[in-house]
Each structure stands twice: as C-alpha cells, then as structure tokens.
Amino acid sequence: MSSRPYDPRPARHRPTPVPSPAPSPAPAPSASWAPPAPAYVTLAGADWLASAARVPHEVHALWADDPMAPVVLPCGTVFDVIDAPALFGRRILARLWSPGGPGSGPVAAHRGRLLLFAAPGTAQRLPALLAWEEWGRRDRTAPPLLCYGTGDAVTVPPLYPSPEGSEPTPAVARWLIAPEVRHPRLPGADALLWACVRAARATTLPITMGG
C-alpha cells in the first residue's frame, strides 16, 4: 500500500496538491530520454482520469479502497491514447520535449509499449495524417502505431508506483508522466504527427515491435 493515502473527497474540498517539478525539455532528441520523477497521480490528476468513466464516483471509490488498483477507462471523450513500441515511443517523447517542442500529456508504460494520452479526436485524425506521410513504407523504420479513441478503452496504471522492495508485476502498467492537473494539456494529431515524422527520420536502426 502506498504511503500517500488516496483522498476520495470531492475536488472542491481538497487542498491544492503540491505540484511536481515541471518536466525539463530534453537538451537534444534521444532514445535515452528519461521522464521526470516521481511519477504518481495527484488528487487533481485522479479527478481528470475518473471523469472519463461513465460513473466517476465508482472509480474514486475503487481507488479509495485500493490506490494500487489499475482501472479500465473509455477513450474518446476526455482523452485518446496513441500506443507505440517502447523504444520508438521514447523517441517521440524526446521530440515532443525537445527545445521548441509542444510537450506531452500523461504517458504510461505497459508490456513493452508506451501509451501517450492525447486530445480527444486524435485517434481518428492521426492515421490519415500518417498515411499522407506514407508511414510504414519499407524504406522507413517507422513502426505501426495503435490509436484508441471512441469505442475503445485502455487500462490506466495504479495511482502510485509499487512500493520500494516489493516484487514488480510485469503485467501492471506504470506512469512515466502521471496526470497532475484537472485539465492537462494534451497533444493533438498535428503535434504527434510532427513528433512521429521527426522521430522516424532520425532513426537509423530498425525498431522491433517489442520496443
């Protein structure tokens, strides 16, 4: 159990959470980009995630009982999710956080994949934009990307990382950049296209589907 107990009270009664340090832009795009730490969900971030559910208070009740519980949430209204192999996903993040880049929203890791939370509607627009760029041609090291939007659902990680010293569970997702505010700024299709194309152009080695 986490040392940060989850508080299920309505947001208007909650104290303002202490913000985590803002992510520092990467000095140069690189596959070795590392996210800021610690990656745990604030109370405001939990409100944002729960708002995607049909009955948000049921999600809050689940987390109040067990903050380490993963939850399945629908996409399409509060967020979409772009799913990339881990290595290529980190290259996308390096571009998003490069000087002059737009930054990213929350990001999770799960089973060798990176889940980039994006603005609603991104899952519908991005595939067409990538097709225009001839994404995935044989002469490119650009892996297929999975786009989850309306009608899809994703498993979001627990609110907090596993306690130190506990046995990690490979199947459990974890936050690389956790939700911290009630209305996070999410990249849209154009920003992700920009980052994906530049990540692919900078790639000199083939990327396997496992990341």
Rank of each mutant, 00 (worst) to 15 (best):
H13T: 11
A173D: 04
A37S: 15
L126Y: 00
P38T: 04
G105M: 05
Q124Y: 09
R198E: 14
A64N: 03
T122D: 08
P8L: 10
S30F: 05
R54F: 08
A86V: 07
P5I: 10
A178E: 08
E167L: 14
A119Q: 14
A34M: 09
S3L: 15
S20W: 04
P102F: 09
R111E: 14
V55E: 13
G45L: 06
P106D: 03
P36C: 11
W33F: 12
A39I: 02
P170V: 09
A64S: 11
C196F: 02
P157I: 04
D83M: 09
P106N: 07
T150V: 13
P25H: 06
I207A: 01
P10H: 10
S24D: 13
A28N: 05
P35G: 12
P187R: 06
M68V: 00
M68L: 12
P179H: 03
T77S: 13
V197S: 11
A202H: 00
L129E: 01
P120L: 08
P187F: 05
Y6C: 06
D83V: 15
R137H: 09
L186D: 00
A11H: 04
A128R: 09
P85S: 11
A123V: 03
Y6I: 03
C147L: 13
R140S: 13
A191I: 01
A46R: 00
A199T: 07
P27T: 06
P99G: 04
D65W: 07
A195S: 10
P143R: 06
S104K: 05
V156H: 03
R185I: 09
G100N: 00
P170D: 10
R90L: 12
L62W: 06
W132L: 15
V107F: 10
D66H: 01
P143F: 03
Y6L: 10
P106G: 08
P187H: 04
L93Q: 12
A142K: 00
G149Y: 01
A64Y: 02
M68E: 13
R174S: 15
V41G: 07
C196P: 01
T16I: 10
W33H: 13
G103P: 05
S162Q: 11
L43Q: 12
G105Y: 02
P15F: 08
P168T: 06
A118Q: 06
W175H: 09
G103E: 01
A37I: 07
D7F: 05
L96I: 03
A142N: 03
E167Q: 11
A50D: 02
G136E: 01
A44H: 09
L126C: 00
I177F: 10
W33Q: 10
S32D: 15
A84P: 01
G165I: 01
T155A: 15
E180G: 14
P35I: 07
S20M: 11
R201D: 13
D152T: 02
P168M: 11
A153V: 07
A94V: 06
R140A: 15
A26G: 14
R90D: 07
F88L: 02
S162R: 12
W48I: 02
R4W: 07
D83N: 13
G76S: 05
L129K: 00
S98G: 14
V41P: 02
D83K: 11
M1N: 08
A200Q: 08
H13D: 14
P163E: 12
T203R: 05
T16P: 10
H110Y: 04
V172I: 13
V72P: 04
V72Q: 12
P67G: 07
